[in-house]
């Protein structure tokens, strides 16, 4: 069987890519996608830990399902906010959104 640490490594890599994306990308949609990567990295962790440590319980799996739901709600709100900005300024690049001092 694939050992646990491999899953954790993939998750950590995904999380780091997501974090890099949030910090380096300037497009709001790309930032949103990077955040999704981070959430899914956590999901991999949850499910892997559940499968290897606690297969008799459902805790980790249920938690992962909750994360999906919350992520979906977050994206729904986030895209609405980004579309709002786009209608006003014809741009979703974070650097152009600079009315307030950053």
């Amino acid at each position: 069987m694939v050992p646990l640490w491999m899953y954790l490594l993939v998750a950590a890599g995904l999380f780091s890519i997501g974090m890099y994306g949030v910090l380096a990308r300037r497009n709001a949609i790309a930032i949103l996608m990077s955040i999704e990567l981070m959430l899914n990295a956590a999901n991999i962790n949850l499910v892997a830990f559940w499968r290897y440590n606690q297969p008799a319980q459902v805790g980790g799996q249920v938690f992962a399902a909750f994360v999906f739901v919350v992520a979906a709600a977050e994206v729904a709100v986030g895209l609405a906010l980004i579309i709002n900005i786009y209608r006003q300024r014809r741009s979703v690049v974070a650097d152009d959104v600079d009315l307030l001092k950053w």
């Binding site: 959430l39 956590a42 949850l46 938690f63």
Partner: peptide
């Protein structure tokens, strides 16, 4: 919240 959930996953692990 990405940080929070990842942290919780590690504590769970």
């Amino acid at each position: 919240s990405g940080f929070l959930i990842y942290g919780i996953a590690l504590i769970y692990g």
